[in-house]
Computed example of a mutant assay.
Amino acid sequence: MATEPPVLSEHSGEPPQPREPVFNFPAPITLSILLIIGLYVLPAYLLPADLSEAFVISLAFSPVRYVYPLTGQNLEWLWTPVTYSLLHGGWEHLLFNALWLAAFGTPVVRRIGTTRFVLFWIVSAVAAAILHAVLNWGEVTLLIGASGVISGLMGAACRFAFPASGRAYNPQFGHLYPRQSILSAFGNRTVAIFIAIWLFGNLVIGLGIPLFGDLGGAIAWDAHLGGFAFGFFCFALFDPWEKPAR
């Protein structure tokens, strides 16, 4: 089959370069953002007040559930350590998390694939919920939001997205950088600075000083720590790459 020659630029005499789309997210990230938007819109705008409250309570995580015998309860204790991560308390809370999910979820998805990403979401949500429950044992509070999972994605990205060589992150090929060991990551100046700033921000939040305004209620800094620690220390369990692709 005959093919036509490429159209040349009248200025440079070279084939025009394809333009990168402004929003180039993997499908799992796009679907995740649409899912959390849908699960916010449904109770906030489409359900009656009583059903909306029941919907949120049935999906939100609460430490008080685990004080009482599980056999005498409904099964909310089983799924809420994951489903809470899909709920949000307001548009500002939702959009803030969607932004960071796109930023840190994109390289992780491209590296580990859809199935591992779903598993990573589930386990990092549970890890964040466990630390929150331990530090708030028996309290009648509701934990919602994807911040614990996003913190896990940040921790995972610290293991590969910041090259040890000091090169800048490449959005196209950065997910193929070699995974750094835990000690190497701590020795990476960029990673160390990132973790220090992240920990400082959560320390400030833990002291009750808001950094980003009202995001729909008190911020569960302890869930952030649980998610980040899981993502950073356990990322190798989900990482299929030992060496960068050629």
Rank of each mutant, 00 (worst) to 15 (best):
residue 72 G to S: 15
residue 71 T to N: 12
residue 5 P to A: 08
residue 76 E to V: 14
residue 68 Y to R: 15
residue 208 G to S: 09
residue 59 L to M: 10
residue 3 T to R: 10
residue 169 Y to C: 10
residue 139 E to C: 06
residue 118 V to Y: 07
residue 115 T to F: 14
residue 22 V to A: 15
residue 172 Q to R: 15
residue 184 S to I: 02
residue 70 L to T: 07
residue 175 H to M: 03
residue 125 A to Q: 04
residue 230 F to S: 08
residue 101 L to E: 00
residue 59 L to I: 04
residue 68 Y to P: 00
residue 152 G to S: 15
residue 75 L to G: 12
residue 213 G to I: 03
residue 39 L to P: 06
residue 13 G to A: 11
residue 141 T to Q: 14
residue 199 L to K: 01
residue 185 A to Y: 00
residue 144 I to P: 00
residue 5 P to I: 04
residue 131 L to P: 01
residue 25 F to V: 11
residue 23 F to G: 11
residue 131 L to E: 01
residue 189 R to W: 09
residue 26 P to Q: 12
residue 192 A to S: 04
residue 237 L to N: 07
residue 83 T to P: 06
residue 230 F to Q: 10
residue 242 E to P: 03
residue 45 Y to H: 10
residue 92 E to M: 04
residue 69 P to Y: 02
residue 16 P to V: 10
residue 53 E to A: 13
residue 9 S to Y: 01
residue 106 T to C: 09
residue 102 A to N: 02
residue 125 A to M: 07
residue 14 E to I: 04
residue 13 G to C: 12
residue 87 L to W: 08
residue 51 L to K: 09
residue 158 C to N: 12
residue 74 N to T: 12
residue 1 M to F: 06
residue 164 A to K: 12
residue 65 R to Q: 13
residue 14 E to M: 08
residue 184 S to L: 05
residue 159 R to E: 07
residue 189 R to G: 10
residue 141 T to K: 14
residue 181 S to E: 07
residue 111 R to C: 07
residue 139 E to Q: 15
residue 47 L to V: 02
residue 59 L to K: 00
residue 28 P to F: 12
residue 114 T to V: 14
residue 217 G to W: 03
residue 163 P to A: 08
residue 91 W to T: 13
residue 49 A to P: 04
residue 163 P to N: 02
residue 114 T to W: 15
residue 79 W to Q: 10
residue 121 W to D: 01
residue 226 G to T: 10
residue 53 E to H: 10
residue 76 E to L: 06
residue 217 G to Q: 02
residue 203 L to D: 07
residue 36 I to D: 00
residue 217 G to P: 05
residue 110 R to Y: 05
residue 115 T to A: 15
residue 30 T to K: 13
residue 169 Y to N: 08
residue 29 I to P: 04
residue 121 W to K: 01
residue 234 C to N: 06
residue 185 A to N: 03
residue 92 E to Y: 01
residue 187 G to L: 01
residue 20 E to I: 08
residue 49 A to K: 12
residue 187 G to Q: 06
residue 214 D to H: 14
residue 85 S to F: 01
residue 20 E to S: 09
residue 143 L to K: 06
residue 55 F to W: 11
residue 146 A to M: 14
residue 127 A to D: 05
residue 6 P to W: 03
residue 212 F to S: 08
residue 218 A to Y: 00
residue 17 Q to M: 09
residue 99 L to K: 10
residue 100 W to I: 15
residue 96 F to K: 02
residue 32 S to C: 12
residue 22 V to C: 09
residue 119 L to E: 08
residue 230 F to G: 04
residue 128 A to P: 04
residue 134 V to W: 05
residue 20 E to L: 08
residue 127 A to F: 00
residue 107 P to S: 11
residue 237 L to V: 03
residue 85 S to G: 11
residue 105 G to Y: 03
residue 200 F to C: 11
residue 216 G to W: 08
residue 237 L to S: 11
residue 225 L to D: 00
residue 30 T to W: 03
residue 139 E to K: 15
residue 117 F to D: 01
residue 194 F to D: 03
residue 178 P to W: 06
residue 92 E to W: 06
residue 92 E to N: 03
residue 192 A to P: 04
residue 178 P to C: 05
residue 34 L to G: 15
residue 198 W to H: 01
residue 142 L to K: 13
residue 81 P to E: 11
residue 67 V to F: 07
residue 34 L to W: 15
residue 158 C to E: 06
residue 122 I to N: 06
residue 230 F to E: 07
residue 226 G to N: 07
residue 9 S to N: 14
residue 115 T to G: 11
residue 205 I to L: 14
residue 113 G to L: 12
residue 3 T to G: 11
residue 107 P to H: 10
residue 169 Y to L: 15
residue 188 N to Y: 01
residue 142 L to C: 08
residue 164 A to I: 13
